[in-house]
Nucleic acid binder design. Structure first.
Lengths: 229, 229
DNA sequence: CGGCGGCTTGATCGGTCTCAAGTACGGTGG
DNA sequence: CCACCGTACTTGAGACCGATCAAGCCGCCG
């Protein structure tokens, strides 16, 4: 980070620590790479990168959550993915970002110089392999997401809840970090339709809502049937 | 291909030639890899691989066209991508294919053993880099496709035509290898809606239809405006 | 010429969006 | 601790777009 780019220059103050974690890890990226990462803080709704900006960095969520999205000229927004702690993001084909990313709530993000990661992966085949596998998994998720977008509203919401439940630990209550609007833009629906679908799932006792951001899975089998996967 | 797997065993007869192309190429994959590829023929609608089968091979289209798709339990089909000559496909995260691929028309496909490609990319950083870049480009396309799926019917069809036009050479007439049903499943619409949208584009003289599979772009600016990108 | 598959066109239905109020919640200041 | 406010979420009524169901048309090949 010797010559900060405009992207990061005004955020240098955010950098709190440079990690030198030495924990034994089976992952080359987690081991060799995390030492190179600068830990940065982003507050709620703060932009991490924007469409058209140079894609000079890769990112990894430590704490919080991130939405990656694209917008149409008239403002319609499609959230392509949510990233939770442990997820990497910012992988782009060209020199420029084709999408934008924002912190959903206050978040801590590890930031890696793209050139450094690529240089490392040119030397270390294990790193290269892991970078590729991360990318392929991301591709898989994108294809799954496409399949979601042809489902009915209820099926989309049920699928979303099952996915979020799967990403959390094994317990039956999901804490959603994102708003209904984020969920709607992720699922290709309106906020009202999402709200109604959640209400219907509550009516049939597939889920319960201790609060609007916390969802208890009451009947996973029923929910799973509704995903139509 | 010394110990053919079930996947390929019944298709050995398809293998016509093993390529030893020595053309100078700036691409490591195209150079070092194509020598390892077996050229196979697939006829119209023939399955190349199916969901759940072992993902032991990578593929590259030489001639023809391929559809990659996933199906829901009730039969709804989402085509995730069309692959044209020059495109690689079959990249998967796990050991199994999470999607299926079929030849749209009679096609010639180069087939590479996945283990061989990975072994090569572990030794050759250029190959590894190109494999990664191919994957990232594919990811980009998947994200673009998601954005398409939130558009209106006309916008989707216009976008599709512009994309197909961009992939062909620079001329103004697109030859579609795929059926209306394939287009519909790619765009998340019904065949009737696709047909009507094409009809409307014809009505406003944005395109012309010399035949149902050939589409002449009459007014690219108008078409481009309708994509809402 | 007949038949079949792929495509188009028409009429109606239904799910989701839109517009418009309500309601619950979290935070802030008194 | 409570009153207030703003934001996020829910709920309702009606419009609209695309799906569905059903014919008809076209081109191709036997």
């Amino acid at each position: 980070m010797s010559t900060p780019t405009p992207v990061l220059a005004d955020r240098q103050a955010n950098i709190s620590t440079v990690r030198h974690s030495r924990m034994a890890s089976s992952y080359a990226l987690a081991g060799a790479l995390e030492m190179m990462g600068a830990s940065m803080s982003f507050s709620r709704n703060e932009e991490i990168y924007g469409e058209g900006e140079p894609a000079d960095y890769l990112y990894k969520v430590v704490r919080g959550a991130v939405r990656m999205y694209k917008v149409l000229s008239d403002g319609r927004r499609q959230i392509g993915a949510f990233y939770l702690p442990g997820d990497m993001f910012g992988l782009e084909a060209g020199a420029m970002h084709a999408s934008s990313a924002e912190a959903i709530g206050d978040s801590t993000i590890l930031v890696f110089k793209r050139s450094a990661v690529l240089a490392l992966s040119a030397r270390d085949a294990d790193v290269a392999r892991e970078l590729w596998e991360t990318t392929v998994r991301e591709l898989q998720r994108a294809h799954d997401h496409m399949l979601l977008l042809i489902k009915s509203a209820q099926e989309r919401v049920a699928s979303f809840l099952m996915e979020m439940a799967g990403r959390g630990c094994g317990i039956d209550e999901v804490a959603l970090p994102m708003s209904r609007q984020d969920i709607a833009d992720f699922l290709g629906l309106t906020i009202e339709t999402v709200s109604r679908a959640i209400g219907q799932l509550e009516d049939i006792h597939a889920i319960a809502l201790p609060s609007s951001r916390r969802i208890a899975l009451r009947n996973r089998a029923m929910l799973s049937r509704l995903t139509a996967s």
